[in-house]
Design a protein around this nucleic acid. Structure first.
Lengths: 351, 351
DNA sequence: CTGTTAGCGCCTTCAG
DNA sequence: CTGAAGGCGCTAACAG
C-alpha cells in the first residue's frame, strides 16, 4: 500500500518485461537498492527492503537471469545435458537423476538429443556453449573426441555418461559393463549353455565394445569358443533386434541362450522369443523359451512373458552421480587434476 | 593463415571466454564487422568475411547467446517445458516430441520437474521466465491457475499439455479422455461385466476427472450403477495401484473388470492381477485373470502377462502438437484471439 | 545504508 | 562496405 506510483498497471497482459529500473521508479529508490533486495536484502534497511519486496511482488517482476549472468564471474545456472534419445526410458531416467541433483542447487537443465549423429552433437555443443552452460553431461555419440576436448570447451567441465571415448580427458561415469556382461555370460555357460548369441549395438560406442569384451572373456575362461555367427552387432532399436533374433532361430545350429546388450535390444529379443516359442508349441514341438540375459533392466522386466535374468542398475543413479561429479568440479571441490572415472556396479537379477 | 595476431593461443584450456572484441582484434577489424559476419555476413566484403570466419573457427569462438538476447526484440530461443516427472516414460515421450519440433527451429528446451507440487511449479515458472523463455509447455499440477495467468506470464505464450485447468485462458492440448474412458468402459459393459473397478489418480488433475467422467457416463448409458466401493482415486504410482488392486480382491463382491486410468496405475494393476491369478490357480480355483482396460499405452503392453486392452495414443505426438501450437503463437501465425483447445484422438487396442 | 558510475557481450543506429 | 557511439538489464566497485 506504500507505492502505487505505477504508470502502466500490470493488468494489461502482453509486452512489457519489467526491469529493475521500473521497480526502482515505482518504489522510489535507486536500481541498486532493488538489486540488493533481489540478492537477499543484505545492507538494506529492513523497512525499505520490505517495501521494495512488496513492489516487486505487486508488479510481478522477474529478474532477468541472462542479463545477470552477463556480469563476469556470475554463473548462468545452466547445465547442458546431451543424450541420444529422450524417448528411451533409460536416458529419461538418467535425465531425471541429473535434474534432481542439479535443481537442488538452483540450476536448470538444457536438454538436447543427438540421435546418435556426431554432426548434431557438435552443433548442440556449440549451441550449449553459446548459451553459457556452466557444465555438460554428455552421452557421447562416437569414438572421436574431436569436439569434446578441453580446449574447445573453454573451461566448461564435461562429464561423459554411460559411454566414454578412447583417449578422452573428461570425467566419466560408466556402468560396469565388462563385469556385468562377463558375469551374465559366465552364468549361462555355467548352466551348460554352449551356443550363446550376443545381440549388441554398434561397437563404435564404448558400451558395445565393453559388453562384448565381457562376453568373450567369459567364453575364454570357460574354454568355449565364440561362434561368430551368433554375434550380431549394430542393432539400433527393438525392431532390428527382433528381426536379428528371428534370423538366429533360422540357423542350422541355433543358439540355446542369448545375451541382449541393452534395453532396446532386450525388448526386441523378448518379442521374438515369445513369438517363436508360441509357434513351436502350437506345432507340437515342446519348446522351452530361449534362455535370456538382458543388460539394463526396464520397467516390467519382472512381468515379462518369458523368464529372463537382467544385469540390473539404476539409470537415475547414473544421472545423479554424473551431476554430483559435475557439481564437484563447479564448486572446486574436486581437485582440478586428472579426469576421474567411476564405474557403477551392477547386480544380476532373475525374473 | 592471414591473422595470427593472437596474444594468448587457444592451446591453454581453462578460463577465457572469447568475445567479439577478441576476434576483432585477432582479425584486425572492428567488432561490428565480426558481428555482421556472425549474422550471416551480409554487407561484408566476401574476402573479409572469409577471413573473419577463419579466425572465428581457429580460435573456437562461440557467440554468447545470452548477451545477444539482451538486445530488445531478439529472442532467447529457449522453450520451457514443465512436467511432473521425467522418469515417467509417458512424459519422456512427450518431451521428445517437443524437443524434435522445437530443435528444428533452432530452439532449445529447458526442462523442469514439478513433482506434482504447486509450490515447485510456481518456483520453476518464475525461474523460467527469468531466463527469458520464449514460450512454455506445462503439464499443470493443480486446478488453480493462479500463477499460470497471462498477466503473470507477461506475454509469454503458454500451452497446457495433457491436463487443463478450469477457467484458464491458455491454449491446451488434451487427450480425448472422456471418450477414451467411455468407450473402454462401454466395451466392458457390453461384454457383460457389471462390477467394474476404477483405479484413478487425483481428481484434482483434469485427466482424473475426465476419465472418471467417461467411466460414469458409460455406466449411466447402460443403466448400471457405479459402485463407490470399486472406485479408488488418488493413486500416485504403480505401488499404490498394486496395493489398491489387492484390496479390491479382498472385497466380498470383488470386481470382474478394471479400468486403470493411466500407465503408472496399469503397471501396478497388472502386477496385482498377475500375482492374484497365479495364487488362485495354484489353490485350484481356475481363475481367469481380471478383465483389464488401461488408459495410455506403454512399451511392452503387447507382451503383458495377462490379456489387456488399452486406450492408446502417442505421447510424442502430444509433445509435437503442443510445440507446434506454441510455435504458431511465436510466429504470429496463430491469431492472438481466443485460447485454442485440441483434443487428440485415442484408439482402442486389444492385446 | 544508499546512490552513482561503469561495463559485462552484443547489436541497432547512424556516420563515414 | 565499414566503423563509432550507445544501450539492452544487471550488479561490482566505489563514493557519500
Amino acid at each position: 500500500m506504500t507505492a502505487p506510483a505505477d504508470p502502466s498497471p500490470a493488468g494489461g497482459a502482453k509486452r512489457a518485461a519489467l526491469t529493475v529500473k521500473d521497480i526502482a521508479r515505482a518504489a522510489e529508490v535507486s536500481p541498486m537498492t532493488v538489486s540488493r533486495v533481489l540478492s537477499g536484502g543484505k545492507n538494506v534497511r529492513p523497512a525499505l527492503r520490505e517495501h521494495v519486496e512488496r513492489v516487486i511482488a505487486e508488479l510481478g517482476y522477474y529478474r532477468n537471469q541472462n542479463a545477470r549472468s552477463l556480469r563476469t564471474g556470475l554463473h548462468s545456472g545452466l547445465i547442458g545435458v546431451m543424450i541420444t534419445n529422450i524417448g528411451n526410458p533409460y536416458y529419461a531416467g538418467m535425465v531425471q537423476g541429473v535434474e534432481r541433483v542439479v535443481a537442488a542447487t538452483g540450476r536448470r537443465i538444457l536438454v538436447g538429443a543427438t540421435n546418435e549423429d556426431p554432426g548434431l552433437e557438435r552443433q548442440l555443443l556449440a549451441d550449449f556453449l553459446g548459451r553459457q552452460v556452466e557444465g555438460l553431461i554428455v552421452v557421447p555419440v562416437g569414438q572421436d573426441p574431436a569436439h569434446l576436448v578441453p580446449e574447445k570447451l573453454r573451461g566448461v567441465p564435461l562429464v561423459l555418461a554411460s559411454r566414454t571415448m578412447e583417449g578422452t580427458q573428461a570425467d566419466a561415469v560408466l556402468i560396469d559393463d565388462v563385469n556385468g556382461a562377463h558375469d551374465a555370460t559366465a552364468t549361462m555357460l555355467g548352466e551348460g549353455h554352449r551356443r550363446i548369441a550376443f545381440l549388441g549395438n554398434k561397437v563404435t560406442v564404448s558400451t558395445g565394445q565393453r559388453r562384448l569384451a565381457g562376453f568373450t572373456a567369459a567364453h575364454r575362461e570357460h574354454g568355449i569358443p565364440v561362434d561368430d555367427d551368433l554375434v550380431v552387432l549394430g542393432l539400433q532399436d527393438a525392431a532390428a533386434a527382433e528381426s536379428a533374433m528371428n534370423d538366429l532361430f533360422g540357423l542350422d545350429a541355433a543358439p540355446t541362450a542369448v545375451f541382449a546388450a541393452n534395453n532396446r535390444i532386450s525388448i526386441g529379443a523378448i518379442r521374438a522369443i515369445t513369438r517363436h516359442t508360441a509357434v513351436e508349441r502350437s506345432a507340437g514341438r515342446g519348446a522351452e523359451p530361449l534362455r535370456l540375459f538382458a543388460f539394463d533392466s526396464f520397467e516390467f522386466a519382472d512381468m515379462a512373458p518369458i523368464p529372463l535374468s537382467v544385469v540390473d542398475h539404476d539409470p537415475e543413479e547414473l544421472g545423479r552421480v554424473c551431476a554430483e561429479m559435475l557439481l564437484a568440479r563447479l564448486d572446486g571441490t574436486a581437485s582440478p587434476g586428472h579426469p576421474r572415472l567411476i564405474e557403477l556396479p551392477v547386480r544380476l537379477v532373475d525374473h
